[in-house]
Design a protein around this nucleic acid. Sequence first.
DNA 1: CTATGAAGTAGAGCGAGGTCTAGATCAAGT
DNA 2: ACTTGATCTAGACCTCGCTCTACTTCATAG
Lengths: 140, 140
Amino acid sequence: MATTEPRAQALSIGEVARRTGLSVHALRFYEREGLLVGPVQRTTGGRRRYTEVDVDWLLICVKLRESGMPLAELKRFAELVRHGPGNEAERLQLLDAHQQRVEAQIRALEECRSVIAWKTSVYAEHLARGEAGGLWDPTA
Amino acid sequence: MATTEPRAQALSIGEVARRTGLSVHALRFYEREGLLVGPVQRTTGGRRRYTEVDVDWLLICVKLRESGMPLAELKRFAELVRHGPGNEAERLQLLDAHQQRVEAQIRALEECRSVIAWKTSVYAEHLARGEAGGLWDPTA
DNA sequence: CTATGAAGTAGAGCGAGGTCTAGATCAAGT
DNA sequence: ACTTGATCTAGACCTCGCTCTACTTCATAG
């Protein structure tokens, strides 16, 4: 049988920080805030030992945060997952709602981009033809 | 001659708030922070009277803010414009740098979107085939 | 044994970006 | 004159998302 071993590689907080891009401080903060799914294991000396599964979860957290999900909602999601099976519909709903927002955000940014592109083109053109004055009004 | 009248329609702060989507508070705050190009005109009674030009500038500010430009940078831009002609190259550079960031942001969001889309599809599939257990691990 | 450096805790502090309060004033309608 | 509602100012206050401080403890190399 292909033993599906959990390959618990016992990563230190520093390692996890490097892998996730979160600071050591942020990792402890996330834990305090209940943003993790399970309690992190500890060595006899009290140090945190993260597993690959923990890291996977954190990587998802990073993506959700990066796309603007507030910590409170991330926490809610973690709670759902922690609570186990039976609430998949709610999880899906949460993710779906977030996805909508991300898409709206992308559209908004694309519009900003086009406004900015237009502005820069006005300046670029102006510079190309020399200082012709009359440009210093806010609209231009 | 086509008199290019500045059609100064004397808008109240409330009107401008409605038109720009900024709150009245935010408008006063922006002014205090030096984010406006010129000083806003006042009535004899001391109330602000905005012109269309002011609104145009504010609309640009809104777009820049919406796309993540920090107030400090917006202030810098306002200063350049206020200072008049001769610094167009610097203005262009500032806008250009921002545009790069907006594009990077869009790319990052698109990646987040695809991660989230994958996650939701996992849940959706799971729900479609009934609660098959074994899904409640953070990776799924 | 000691030095060094990573990690532990609890809690204070910070920067950004507004928001809100208090109390006064202005402007318009009746 | 009176009421109502928008504005005025200065400055206090708030939320978010970490970050940093202070001080202690653990682990490892020399």
